[in-house]
């Protein structure tokens, strides 16, 4: 299975939401990293045929996905960022309904729903109304619905948004389990969501893919180094203005700063191993601090 995006552009009047994106994906987990407003959701919506690109094309094993129409949707699973459901249906009925519109026959649907309810840990609350599930449970119901048709292409848009750290780890593991023999594209602005599980990363900024590769490739090719240096509390503000600071840790002898710079920022600075969070900060600058981006 190969999913190929060729010069995909999407314009909304004057705004260019996605600009000339060309990537190729084969089985495995792909992480789409970018700050809010980078164009990740628009790109995901195009991939799910919810939006039509203004320019460019997307092919699945060489065939245009919009021409494939139902055949493409048959192998597609999608968890939208703004995952909505029918609040008064119970989790089991919700999944049975989605199974029916995904074309599963009732007997197969029942079996698959039961299996997925167990897998995402919702079996004990299957008769509970969707609106009464916790945020994490709703997200797990979301991933279950996306998996109902055993999709060959699984698109997950910000799947961990709003989840507590425990739920996020659980979710990440679940995605990792589900990633066998399929393309999983996971969009997020939370670096840790993809750093462990993605085989390839796409860094998106202002509608463009600014950098792509495996985590190692990205770390290797990012033209910046990380430095640890300790400064007095009085000097911290001046340092923040002068350098890109990825982290500040307060200590008794002053603040330990993690500075991103080509050269040592000061005497005594010790070089540290570059992380994906550092890269994220380097590419996305101040916007990377929006919301819980660096969690």
């Amino acid at each position: 299975m190969q999913l190929r995006l060729e010069h995909v552009t999407k314009r909304f009047r004057e705004t260019v939401a996605v600009s000339d994106v060309s990537v190729t994906m084969e089985n495995g987990v792909y992480g789409l990293l970018g700050v809010n407003g980078a164009g990740k959701t628009t790109l995901m919506r195009i991939l799910c045929t919810l939006a039509v690109p203004t320019e460019g094309r997307i092919t699945c094993d060489g065939e245009d996905i919009f021409e494939m129409d139902m055949r493409y949707r048959k192998i597609l699973g999608y968890l939208p960022q703004d995952f909505g459901f029918y609040p008064d249906l119970c989790a089991e009925d919700y999944l049975m309904y989605v199974a029916s519109i995904k074309g599963l026959r009732p007997a197969a649907a029942k079996k698959r729903v039961e299996e997925l309810l167990h897998r995402v840990g919702l079996y004990s609350v299957r008769r509970r109304k969707m609106k009464k599930l916790s945020g994490g449970m709703k997200r797990r119901a979301g991933i279950a619905q996306a998996m109902l048709n055993d999709p060959k292409i699984l698109v997950l848009d910000e799947p961990t948004a709003g989840l507590d750290p425990n739920e996020r780890v659980r979710f990440r593991n679940l995605i990792s389990e589900l990633s066998q023999e399929r393309i999983v594209l996971l969009s997020t602005h939370i670096v840790s969501d993809v750093s462990y599980i993605a085989k390839r990363l796409f860094l998106m900024k202002d509608g463009r893919i600014v950098h792509q590769g495996s985590m190692e490739e990205i770390l290797e090719h990012t033209p910046v180094r990380a430095w640890l240096c300790t400064v007095s509390k009085e000097r911290t503000n001046a340092c923040l203005k002068k350098w890109k600071v990825a982290n500040i840790r307060a200590g008794s002898g002053g603040n330990e700063l993690r500075v991103l710079s080509d050269l040592p920022p000061m005497e005594g600075a010790a070089e540290a191993e570059l992380t994906l969070e550092d890269v994220f900060l380097y590419y996305f600058g101040e916007k990377a601090g929006d919301d819980d981006a660096l969690l």
């Binding site: 597609l76 999608y78 939208p80 703004d82 995952f83 459901f85 074309g103």
Partner: peptide
Amino acid sequence: AVFFTSYHG
């Protein structure tokens, strides 16, 4: 989004 991306959507 889920509705329209389903097979029969």
